[in-house]
Design a protein around this nucleic acid. Structure first.
Lengths: 340, 340
DNA sequence: CTGAAAGCGCTTACAG
DNA sequence: CTGAAAGCGCTTACAG
């Protein structure tokens, strides 16, 4: 039903290999008459020939596809990375598959297996980070992949992350300088490398400014609206409320906001908040968020570069870890602490 | 380097076809000794065999992949559809490719071509709708596809849309009953079937309630934050400001909000707004949006069902158009008109 | 009952 | 210079 090389060949009266060579455009020096050349081209167009990439892939042992595995397609950070990588792939003649794990470790493992069996040339992974054996296996097998945004401290891989530690340090420092002393930290789940790093930045800032760490103010578990809500709720019930929140992840913010509004408090008059956000989430807020904004486009670009390089030399022992700084954006959700 | 059927066959000492039959699990009546069976299974596991799906696809002339083409992966409506379809595919043993066109017609055309050449079994398309020849061609070729959310009134296809016309009618009616008379309509680009239908619902409601249509209040062009901002800006400068906005698309809302806040106006005290939104966009607003909420999960489910059916019988002349109702959610961005 | 062979649609090293 | 043939890794109709 769909036309093949052979169809063109019989129609024109040449050998399929000739058609292949003409159509591929390689073999410039391959001299078939200009006439035949054009006849082949026209026939191809006429019968609506579109090459079977499955067959090509099988023959060439290369699919020209890369896969991206993200934990939440509804999170603008990950959607933004997907969008950027899609554009980069287009420019580099790569095709692109996005898989959404919904933060389910099992799905990640299955998707990786699937993408491998489909012959994907390489993978960019934002891992769920509940387990890591499958990532180690990938590395052993020399299957080209890059970790992005999240990574494992104890596995050396090609990696692009942001400076979570330093970025949060600066943000918390900003709060402290506004006079805040009781600053809550809302995290994600504790297996997460990124969240641990952010927590570290938070604690270091308190330490450096001689503020006692109150463990009641360090809450959070999971990357959902609900977990953010639950975490904030717990804090709101403390005898001495915090005056500021450092919120360590995009989606969580929404839940924290709900809890704050539910308690009848105003931002920033009663409570200051700083959150991780990106250009996409921010405009949804009627009042601009004071935010740590991760460089989505840069993350995508560098990750793709690393992956293309790794695909070219899968055996290389030279793993690169790229740490990008985020932008700190002063919005309208932070204010001087009362009395300062 | 990666193990093949043949590797297993030589290792076990049987013919590759035997391995294939055992591993496929079909041919229950195929009697190879229990022992050989297990030997094959174990060897497969041992050498880490994962079947080459490219080869399978080529042989079977079926890839077991469906593609989804969306115009904006950052729009939670489309991201939500992608997520749901991903889950449905997983349950139905299909793999899934998402392509993001960024509302660029040319990208859509290229992605369709790409997905076809990759042998994708079928497509779910949210079309850009600047052109339609390529969609007509797809239909002629009997290539299985379903249109979702947007469709062409003059091409009969399998389709899942929402009742744009009726949904907007009800929303505008709600505003009218709150006493609003000057109600602006912010649309997208005019080629869009959905936007035209929404505009129709808007106009019909005005007509039914004897409110004169003021063409100055019908604005908008494009599906971006910027276009929403520009459209709202134009209206804010009118001598007689509207008291309410009906905003016909998700992303546009953000731009309209910017313009309203910039003018120093409050929602809902000065201006009421109703927007298209879904469960994902809504929580980003500190004050819940009065919204028309499209049934993302249902759209995905019905579209996938139609596609699976179409893949089974590509020659069928029986095209189905499914129209789903949206939910009208009364939030806090609408108020009685001043003086009512 | 089961092995051997053909073939899916390509590409390219090989021989004429 | 160019046609014919092999082969990528599978599956299954066919013959023994």
């Amino acid at each position: 039903m769909t036309a093949t090389l052979k169809d063109i060949a019989t129609k024109v009266g040449v050998h399929p290999s000739t058609v292949s060579r003409v159509l591929s455009g390689k073999y410039e020096n391959f001299n078939v008459s200009q006439e035949t050349r054009e006849l082949i081209m026209n026939t191809a167009k006429e019968i609506n020939y579109v090459p079977n990439e499955t067959a090509r892939s099988l023959r060439l042992r290369k699919t020209q596809i890369i896969g991206l595995i993200i934990p939440d397609i509804l999170n603008p950070l990950f959607a933004g990375v997907a969008r950027s990588i899609g554009n980069i792939c287009e420019k580099n003649d790569y095709n692109f598959i996005v898989c959404n794990t919904d933060e389910v470790q099992d799905k990640e493992i299955r998707y990786i297996e699937m993408l491998k069996s489909r012959g994907t040339d390489g993978l960019i992974i934002v891992p769920v980070q509940r387990e890591k054996a499958h990532i180690e296996k990938l590395k052993e097998e020399r299957y080209p992949f890059v970790l992005a945004i999240r990574h494992f401290g104890d596995i050396e891989t090609d990696t692009v992350v942001t400076d979570n530690d330093g970025d949060v340090y600066k943000a918390v420092e900003y709060l402290i300088k506004l006079g805040h002393r009781r600053i809550a930290f809302v995290g994600g789940h504790s297996e997460s490398y990124a969240i641990r790093a952010r927590e570290k930045g938070y604690k270091q800032a308190l330490l450096d400014y001689n503020i006692r760490l109150d463990h009641d103010l360090v809450v959070g578990n999971g990357y959902t609206v609900e977990s953010g809500y639950a975490a904030a709720k717990k804090i709101m019930n403390l005898p001495e409320r915090p005056t500021a929140f450092m919120i360590s992840s995009n989606i969580i913010i929404v839940g924290v906001l709900e809890a704050i509004f539910e308690a009848g408090l105003s931002i920033p008059e009663d409570i200051s908040i700083i959150g991780f956000a990106d250009s996409c989430a921010t405009p949804y807020l009627s009042c601009p968020l004071t935010a740590i904004s991760q460089p989505v486009g840069q993350i995508a670009k560098r990750a793709a570069e690393l992956l293309f390089k790794r695909i070219d030399s899968p055996e290389s022992e030279d793993y690169q870890k790229i740490v990008l700084p985020s932008k700190f954006i002063v919005g309208k959700t932070t204010l001087k602490a009362f009395g300062s």
